[in-house]
Amino acid sequence: MTPTLPEILRGNFMSLAQPQTPDMAGDFMTSRIGVIALLNLLAAQDAERGTAAIVAENAAIESMLQASTTYAVVCPDPANAITPAAIDARNAALRRALIVLHTAVESLGDNDTDRRILALYALMAAGRRLELPPLP
């Protein structure tokens, strides 16, 4: 399961709102606050550019599926994906279709299409890249 941004922020809130017990003092609490801060930083990056990355990814996957007419992989109907939840649901459906395509491509030994799909995976990963802060 991949947590959503609201789930991460709610979890961070609950971690901070929980009363501190004596065994949570010192290094434990310092580490705990550091993890919460890091999650907030990564969540902020995702909020800033995550939706745009998923929309671009959806378009790239659709293009790949439509260009691969040799294979009987159905591109999911474009839904009216305007909310973050709808965009994510569309992305999940497109990814499932891409997996079906990639499986067929590999089983038939279609190296050219396989390379294009692998390049798409690299592009998708780069679009979702989050930057960790430098170590102190």
Rank of each mutant, 00 (worst) to 15 (best):
G34A: 08
P134R: 03
R129V: 06
A85T: 07
I61H: 04
M14D: 15
M14P: 04
A72I: 05
V55W: 06
D23W: 08
A53E: 03
E57G: 15
D88L: 12
A47W: 01
T21A: 15
M14G: 11
Y71Q: 08
S63F: 02
I99P: 11
T113A: 02
A25N: 14
N80Q: 09
G109H: 01
N40T: 05
I33M: 10
H102M: 15
A56E: 07
L101H: 01
Y121Q: 12
D114C: 08
C75V: 06
N111Y: 04
I82T: 15
A17H: 09
A92I: 08
E7A: 10
L5W: 02
A59Q: 10
A97I: 01
T69H: 08
P22D: 12
R116E: 00
L130V: 09
P133H: 04
T103F: 01
H102V: 03
G26F: 02
F28W: 12
C75A: 12
A60Y: 01
G11F: 13
P133F: 03
A92P: 11
M29W: 12
I54H: 11
R129Y: 08
L118R: 12
T2P: 14
D110C: 02
R116S: 00
E7R: 05
E7N: 05
A17V: 05
I36M: 13
Q20K: 15
M29T: 11
P6V: 05
N40C: 10
E106I: 06
A56D: 09
Q20Y: 13
A85Q: 12
A81R: 04
L118P: 01
R90Q: 14
L123V: 02
A81W: 05
I54P: 07
V73G: 03
G26Q: 04
G50A: 03
A47C: 05
G50L: 02
A53W: 05
L120F: 00
L98N: 05
D23A: 13
L65H: 00
I82M: 11
L65Y: 00
A125T: 06
I54L: 14
A79E: 11
G109C: 02
A17E: 07
T83Q: 06
T2K: 14
L38F: 04
I99R: 14
A44Q: 10
L65R: 01
E106R: 11
A126F: 03
P134C: 03
L38S: 08
T4P: 04
R49Q: 14
F28E: 07
A47L: 10
E106K: 11
D77L: 13
I54R: 14
T83I: 02
N12Y: 06
